[in-house]
Design a protein around this nucleic acid. Structure first.
Lengths: 231, 231
DNA sequence: ATACAGCATATTGTATACAATCTCATTATA
DNA sequence: TATAATGAGATTGTATACAATATGCTGTAT
């Protein structure tokens, strides 16, 4: 029985990166916000070095855009970005499907169904933070199950962007029907259970295309609001 | 007519990263080599700051593995890594194929054919550095043509790893038949010309599987040598 | 002879100081 | 008035100094 989990030192730069990442995903840092190193230094109580290193990491994750001698800015997603994001997501999820479809067992389906139930529960309680997190856990499970290091890495790089864009959707459409995700996940599970790879891929494509459209309109709405309020 | 190309300040960290990257790809830095910051500081004539920042970038590219308080080491590819690398490459190239197959025009085919000719020429001259570079340019063109920012980014992240692994193949098999790549590229071009997406995908899969097998055996051979010479 | 504690050295992690560059308001000039 | 030059302030880029940690040697006790 495993009692203790590995202790590994987590460097300041990673802690800083995590804080900034979360702030972006949760919308506390808005698109195009200027992220000033000195400000973070003060707020986080660390020196500029780990802050700078964290910003370099986040730039590689495309959550931050840096301009030489001007600084770091929160990435603003335009319509093409959203389009690209979800087509990439479809590609990665379909790749994962190829890798795992013949390896998923009953306990995996049980676990995934449990996640769906939990998500339904959180929707009923209006706990949207948990809804998002459970939703992501569903997709994450399938990706991680592949054990493919490059796939997992690519996934990690886009997942933060997806989260950031979904936040925009939530902001633009506060009354979004969260139950859609439930039926989506059930459809995916059914296709996996049937070991029907093409069906899984088609569902992934369909769902991501729909979510992409939703986020696209969110981006447009928010852009309109911004232009309207401060032209 | 475009006369001048954009001048953009290239930071020290990027220059340092480029140097280390090239050194790894060209085999001057061997797998598991300890990359000591102070040594680079001295050799490159810059301070530790840009060196550290370059190492962070390369860690995100998976060319460097860093262990807290122990330092940075050149990534050593094992057999699973090679397997994963080329299956990911297939996925990305097939995604690119979906995006570009209906957009390629005559001038594109001409350009790509010219690349193949140049590559053949370099093989005849035994200029293997140019052979590699032309080969990569062929694949790069198709990826870039997609204009898909995330695809291009993912590609960039694996292309250095592919180059590093191909260097291993060259080391293990000095008499490798370089003309194989020529017929591979012709096969890809034919499939694109026929607008046959499934054919393109099948060729990509076939070629990458073969190259993966070659690199896999290279990794095994080199591992055997290393274990034999210093057990 | 072996195992362990403790110290010396090397290396990385972090903080701070200084240099280069950009932005923007102000002023001079046509 | 419009436009360009100028300089102060802000911010990032780079260098260096100091702190924390890991490694390996040496001496000592068993």
């Amino acid at each position: 029985m495993k009692v203790f989990s590995q202790i590994r030192p987590v460097s300041l730069r990673e802690q800083v990166a995590e804080q900034i990442r979360t702030a972006i995903i949760e919308g506390r840092l808005k698109p195009n916000d200027h992220v000033v190193e000195a400000a973070l230094t003060e707020q986080l109580g660390v020196s500029r070095t780990p802050v700078r290193e964290a910003l370099i990491i986040l730039e590689r994750e495309a959550l931050i855009v840096t301009v030489p001698h001007r600084g770091a800015f929160v990435r603003a997603f335009n319509e093409e970005d959203v389009e690209a994001l979800f087509s990439m997501r479809t590609t990665l999820e379909n790749f994962a499907a190829e890798l795992v479809i013949d390896r998923l067992g009953d306990q995996d389906y049980t676990y995934l169904e449990d996640l769906v139930d939990r998500q339904r529960h959180y929707i009923e309680q209006n706990d949207f933070k948990q809804v998002r997190s459970t939703d992501m856990a569903f997709h994450q499970y399938l990706i991680s199950y592949s054990g493919h290091p490059l796939l997992m890495r690519s996934w990690e790089e886009i997942v933060a962007q997806v989260a950031a864009v979904l936040y925009l959707r939530a902001e633009a459409q506060p009354d979004y029907d969260e139950y859609l995700a439930i039926s989506d996940h059930c459809a995916i599970l059914d296709a996996y259970r049937a070991r029907d790879l093409e069906k899984v891929k088609a569902e992934n494509r369909r769902i991501n295309n729909r979510v992409a459209a939703e986020c696209l309109s969110a981006v447009r709405v928010l852009k309109g609001r911004a232009d309207g309020s401060a032209p």
